[in-house]
Amino acid sequence: MLVTAFAIIRIRNLFSVVILTGLFSLLAAAIYILMDAVDVAFTEAAVGAGVSTVLMLGTLALTTNDEKSTYKNRAVPAAILSIITGAMLIYGTLDMPNYGDAKAPIHQHVAPRYLNQSAQEIGLPNVVTSVLASYRSYDTLGETFVIFTAAMGVLAIIGRGRRRRKKENVEQEAKT
């Protein structure tokens, strides 16, 4: 995954970059499976690797395929800034519990309740589904609102622009 991310930085052809992004998402999905998050892996493979790659390819079809030039004047300050930020984040992780530690604070609060009670309260074997659809269903409701808003935004941005441009063309043709 690190190699893919590095290649995304270096490659100038946007088509390759988009395909590499799909690969990046797919590798992420494989890692999610290794970390027991099967539902997340499904979603990432279908939505992250599938839908967003298609969306980006559509954008490339409507715009250009090649990136213009390097931005040398911006590369060095940007690299310094990201290294500083990364160093601070790594300093922050030093306090975190070890990977896979069952005594970590994250596993002490609501998760045991979900695991122990959801079979009686919801009656579904898949705990992720019962948490998503029942205990935290307001989150899911909010998510659908976000998707609805995004869809309206996309239609407002692209749909209206198209129509106005067509009208202008018609008017120009009428003049000539």
Partner: peptide, 23 residues
């Protein structure tokens, strides 16, 4: 079992991420 709560949060986040990407 692994903790299901982060899985739920990230499921929501992936879908929201695609919505913002498309915008």
């Amino acid at each position: 079992f692994s903790n299901p709560l982060p899985h739920v949060l990230i499921l929501t986040a992936i879908v929201v991420g695609v919505a913002t990407t498309s915008l």
